[in-house]
Design a binder for these strands. Sequence first.
DNA 1: TATGATACGGACGATATCGTCCGGTTGATC
DNA 2: GATCAACCGGACGATATCGTCCGTATCATA
Lengths: 198, 198
Amino acid sequence: MPHPAARQPRKDALRNRERVLDAATELIRRDGEKVPIARIAEHAGVGVGTVYRHFATREDLLGALVYRSFGLAVDNARAAAAYPGSALEGVRAFFLATLRDRERFVLPLHGGPVILTPATRERQGRVRTVLRGLIERGQGAGELRADLSPEDLIVAASLLSRPLPGTGDWERLARRQIDLMISGLAPAAPSTTTPQRP
Amino acid sequence: MPHPAARQPRKDALRNRERVLDAATELIRRDGEKVPIARIAEHAGVGVGTVYRHFATREDLLGALVYRSFGLAVDNARAAAAYPGSALEGVRAFFLATLRDRERFVLPLHGGPVILTPATRERQGRVRTVLRGLIERGQGAGELRADLSPEDLIVAASLLSRPLPGTGDWERLARRQIDLMISGLAPAAPSTTTPQRP
DNA sequence: TATGATACGGACGATATCGTCCGGTTGATC
DNA sequence: GATCAACCGGACGATATCGTCCGTATCATA
């Protein structure tokens, strides 16, 4: 027989789950992925039992964080693809959005085990697809170099989401990197930008 | 009384110190900076006591690794500055050298405490100075954009030294990023920049 | 409001890691 | 080769973290 009643989930449970994810995001980004569960629980204002109930293992928690991050990436990619104006500006918007949201990203930051559930992989593919559309539009308009791939943008954006410690003002430094990168995305310079050269 | 004899350091001590640094580099890059000292000792083939004798605290060990990394960076910057050919190719050489040596770099990778001893800071400044020379040469020759700073190159290179986990072939992806970056380092494309004659 | 299912918090025993200490060994010097 | 300062390894008690368990509190439903 099918599900008899399927009770509504309790809202305190949902609230606590979100709190745990938020706390974990902050602490993992600050102290690394091995931060004690007890510390995450404390920072979230819940007991350790609550954390372990929602996420049976550390991997489950990490996996949920990564999944959530890719949701953000999908949103940003879609917004960039729908950006009014040139595709090149759309690409810049994608970079800037990643930079803006950087504190909410928890990607496999270090050498630790990479958690990629099927659902996460699906989102990952969606980011690629959306960016591919944007790139092809730009290439058609002659705004983007022909050999540009979604992977290039994803790698560059991911790098921006991990502030380099010891550098004072990541916001400023990252914007510089974006500018340099954007300058490099135009079609190959020698052929198109030197028409009047002797 | 001044130094009476200043004995020669024992070579087993020096050898073990190097072994510990090498082991720590590998494990910290793989498992994060909180990797147990005992694991480092085991991987280095020495006892924990030996590690603690050379590096009284975890911070001391981390600091030594960072110091060592900046030594590498100085070497690479000097080689790049002395690169025969255009300054732009010198910059590319610097990036490629960083990529090549990436597994030997231990920079303050995560949010953890940033260890910057005065000696390390001195090396850091030396990298900046050497790169500034290279950049100015390139700007004088019209090969590099006028607003380029050593910091830009250092940030970009540092990013390359931290492989993005979950991506299969960092070597390939990083080379792509280098190409894109190099394309963005030329003077502003709109050709309003006067092609000066040297 | 009554009720039962669901979630909560945190104590607890087990395990992992820390940093020190010391008996034994090695190597620089004479 | 003899000497002894310097170094080596790992055992050890202290502390930190883990993941489970259960009595109590809260919420969805009737």
